[in-house]
Amino acid sequence: MIKLIVNADDFGYSPGVNYGILHSYLYGIVNSATMMMNMAGTRQALAMAKQYPGLRTGVHLVLTSGKPLLTDLVTLTNKDGYFRSQVDLEGISLEELELEWSAQIDRFIGAGLTPSHLDSHHHIHTREEFLPVVQSLSKKYGLPFRVNGDFPLEGVKSHTDRCLFDFYGDGIQEDYFSTLAEKAEDGETVEVMCHPAFADQLLMEGSSYNLMRLMELKILCSAKLPPNIKLIY
């Protein structure tokens, strides 16, 4: 038996994203989500997570979208106070990064929620140079992190045995979940990353990955799992 976690990233990005994730949980196979703590839809996502505790929710740590929660983080932001882009991350202070990511986790916990696990926007936590921060946060909060595909992060508790990133873009296929057993081994716990959403103005203007999220939503709400794959939680 393969144990499956279908995790919706970007909870909190916008109302359209939030409603898409909730719809995929209530009427589809999404059973987990990770929340961005610095975005326009974060307050709504926090309320939704409280209302639907069956949707296990963790924190989607952010370094490349929006503004940080803390101020005066000079190595993390551009001249306008926004996070730098994912192609411009040279010279990041690990001390500043740990302070900001701790603030994001603390905001989630401070809202009265218990995070299930941690991952990051644009897979930033898997960058080798940030490993000391990831190790420190995992230990500090006692939380597992998303693995880097088939590879655990050194010195960090893993959320699953494997994480599949290919339900994305051209990899979004109607039969994706019916053939999922071909990509995992019996007895493994497997996470599939997904990004369901209803398109709204914030998503359309802020993300190049927008309308494809509607296709993800449709498949996540119609997918049939084979008998040797079981959703957990």
Rank of each mutant, 00 (worst) to 15 (best):
L4Y: 12
I5W: 05
A8V: 12
A8R: 00
D9T: 15
P15L: 12
P15V: 15
G20E: 00
Y25F: 15
Y27S: 13
G28F: 04
I29H: 11
I29T: 13
S32F: 05
A33S: 15
M36R: 01
T42I: 12
T42F: 10
K50F: 10
Q51Y: 08
Q51R: 14
Y52R: 06
G54Q: 13
T57V: 14
V59T: 14
T71K: 14
L73H: 10
T75R: 09
L76Y: 11
K79V: 12
F83Y: 12
L89H: 11
L89W: 11
E90W: 09
G91D: 13
G91E: 08
L97N: 05
E98R: 10
E98T: 03
E100P: 02
W101Y: 06
A103N: 08
A103Y: 01
Q104D: 11
R107T: 09
T114E: 02
H121Y: 03
H121K: 04
H123K: 06
L137R: 12
S138P: 01
S138M: 08
K139T: 09
F145R: 02
V147P: 03
S158R: 11
T160P: 05
D161Q: 02
G169R: 05
D170C: 01
Q173M: 07
E174D: 12
Y176V: 07
Y176Q: 07
T179I: 11
A181S: 15
E185P: 07
E185G: 09
D186L: 08
G187F: 02
E188Y: 09
V190D: 09
V192F: 15
C194R: 10
L203E: 03
L203T: 07
G206V: 03
Y209I: 13
Y209C: 12
Y209H: 11
Y209M: 12
N210A: 12
L214H: 01
K218S: 03
L220F: 04
C221Q: 01
C221T: 06
K230Q: 05
L231Y: 10
